[in-house]
């Protein structure tokens, strides 16, 4: 029983980060009906930027801020240079193009920063709190991660539900034509969706890097986790992405805890297959995933 609690506690912060990553995928999907398979490639790239800034200035926080700005910019660039022109052609083209971006970004990062894993130490103490005579697998850094994720999700939900821009973005996602006829500049809103997704991904990258190491391909596995969470959540639902992001993180933590961490990708795969077989439209969405 105490094991169970330990595993769950240990999975919370990674679950929260997976939730952010799934959120980024959902933001892009809602705005342009494209799954951005380069999302975590972008996050990896901005995390390297954060690392560089941190090494130059010694400030983790400044690294985070610059990574967020870079995530915003990269998101907009990818949207305008790749997705908008491709989207007009075909959907499989858009999917392939995002993989092209992923390949290019991973190679570019390896060219600039080298391919070897780099340590990205946590900015604050990452050893577990001590209470009731034992050490719990929950550290001040986990608390920082959790606080950051909660803050970001709350901020986003305020933007989306309480502001005109958020309303315009949601309308542009649901029905671009009606949005245009209402006077919304839809293309800007779509680009803004990519930008915010880039920012969210950047935060996720900086937060997750201390939990593993940073290399050009080290986020590939998180792409699978995030995609799984986003799809189970319905791919359209911000709430679903957050809920199932945390859920996926906890399940992976439990399975890894009781068996072996190398099972994690298989767990994600099994979750994904089960979901696609039995509830392909996701739990939080009424849209169709099935082909026929």
């Amino acid at each position: 029983m105490i094991d169970f609690i330990d595993y769950l506690l240990g999975g919370i912060s990674s679950g929260a980060i997976i939730a952010l990553m799934a959120l980024a995928l959902v933001l892009v999907w809602r705005s342009t009906r494209v799954v951005n398979f380069a999302q975590l490639g972008q996050a990896m790239f901005t995390t390297y930027i954060a690392l560089t800034v941190r090494e130059l200035t010694g400030s983790w926080f400044l690294g985070l801020i610059i990574a967020m700005a870079a995530g915003l910019v990269v998101g907009v660039i990818v949207h305008f240079l790749v997705i908008r022109p491709v989207k007009r052609l075909d959907t499989s083209g858009a999917i392939i193009a995002t993989f092209g971006v992923l390949i290019a970004l991973e190679a570019l990062a390896a060219m600039v920063w080298g391919g070897d894993p780099e340590a990205f130490p946590p900015p604050i103490n990452n050893s577990g709190y001590e209470a009731f005579g034992r050490i719990w697998p929950f550290s001040p850094y986990d608390l920082l991660v959790l606080a950051s994720v909660v803050f970001l999700v709350l901020a986003l939900s305020v933007v989306f539900t309480r502001t005109n821009v958020g309303l315009a973005m949601r309308a542009s996602a649901f029905n671009p034509e009606v949005a245009r006829l209402s006077g919304v500049r839809v293309n800007r809103m779509l680009a803004l969706g990519w930008a915010i997704a880039g920012l969210v991904g950047a935060v996720a990258g900086v937060l997750v890097a201390p939990l593993s190491t940073l290399s050009p391909t080290s986020f590939d596995i998180f792409l699978v986790f995030a995609f799984t969470a986003a799809v189970i959540g319905g791919l359209d639902s911000l709430v679903g992405a957050v809920a199932f992001g945390i859920g996926t993180g906890l399940v992976i933590a439990l399975v890894s805890g009781y068996s072996d961490s190398s099972n994690a990708p298989l767990v994600a795969l099994v979750l994904l297959v089960l979901n696609l077989l039995f509830k392909p439209e996701g739990v939080f969405s009424h849209h169709k995933a099935r082909a026929v």
Binding site: L167, R170, A171, L181, S182, V184
Partner: peptide
């Protein structure tokens, strides 16, 4: 052409944001 995912008032507020 309304957007069913939004509330009635949100549908209205969509018009004329400028």
């Amino acid at each position: 052409s309304t957007i069913p995912d939004l509330t009635v008032e949100e549908n209205l507020k969509l018009g004329g944001m400028w």
